[in-house]
Nucleic acid binder design. Structure first.
Lengths: 152, 152
DNA sequence: CTAAATCCGAGTAAATCAGTAGGATTTATC
DNA sequence: GATAAATCCTACTGATTTACTCGGATTTAG
């Protein structure tokens, strides 16, 4: 598990915010996700300072996205919350290598890094919301199946 | 940096072993890589117990690969040393999810996991050795370029 | 016998993770 | 203006992991 809960919770919180058009309170998001509100608060603070969300203080306050969901890539969010996604240090900073022999692993790690980066760059919060809403719809369909319609 | 030095050092040690046909001592590998011998020893113990290398004890002892380099994928080595490569917990164990709403991030993390896995599965120790030897050759060529040949 | 090597278990300083705790500030509503 | 509901901010903490170090037991070539 190399994406910490900070990144996961943050991304999922953005999806929840993308569902709404009015401010959503930490407490509400935390309940939907089944996680600690105080912890989520710290994560949302990072996302706010990075400009992805804006807050309304006071009663009936909460958070809203400050950009359109399709303008927020999962890459930037994860980089904001996790710092870096490089599999090994030398992918970020090639001076961090001190081995004597030529290292055969460099290309491998660069390829891994580039691929992960490209997947996350190609996936926005809007895409995640779409997936979540599709799952919601499937869930509703299954419930209706289980409950046969006596009216027909 | 989500691949720890345990995985990196272990993989690089295997490449060193793949260069040799006789036992190579920890001390020698550690010097070539510029890392701690006592730490490397623990890593090699894991690789030995997992069956990738065999040891010869006593004077003039050391380690050798116990399989052909092209029969050892980087995936199995990294899994042995790192435990798991799943980006998030629910990719390994779907019961570890407790959120209430549908989660839009599941497919994303599964895609990342599958892609990383496939890259590592498609790269063997032989491939890493080839890259290392290519770099060695380039290094030699550069040195000869810098030192013009007065005999011609 | 000795030197060189692996084998094995214990310990450890530092960093990170996943929170908890508590108080200050802001704001809508009564 | 008081109150309740919310964000804001900083500090602390227990558990785990990381990247080692250390010491000694065992094995083996010469």
């Amino acid at each position: 598990m190399w994406i910490s809960t900070r990144g996961q919770y943050g991304l999922r919180a953005l999806v929840e915010l993308a569902r709404e058009t009015k401010p959503l309170a930490i407490k509400e998001i935390a309940e939907r996700q089944g996680i600690s509100g105080a912890y989520l608060e710290q994560i949302l603070a990072l996302l706010r300072r990075a400009g992805y969300i804006k807050s309304t203080r006071g009663a009936f306050g909460g958070y809203m996205l400050s950009k359109a969901p399709d303008q927020i890539t999962t890459l930037e969010v994860i980089l904001t919350l996790e710092g870096s996604l490089a599999p090994v240090a030398c992918v970020e900073d090639s001076s961090s290598c001190n081995h004597v022999n030529a290292c055969g692993t460099e290309n491998l790690w660069r390829r891994v890094d580039a691929t992960v980066t490209s997947i996350l760059l190609g996936c926005t919060v809007a895409d995640l919301l779409e997936e979540a809403e599709f799952k919601d719809a499937v869930q509703v369909m299954k419930q209706q199946e289980a409950k046969p319609n006596y009216q027909s």
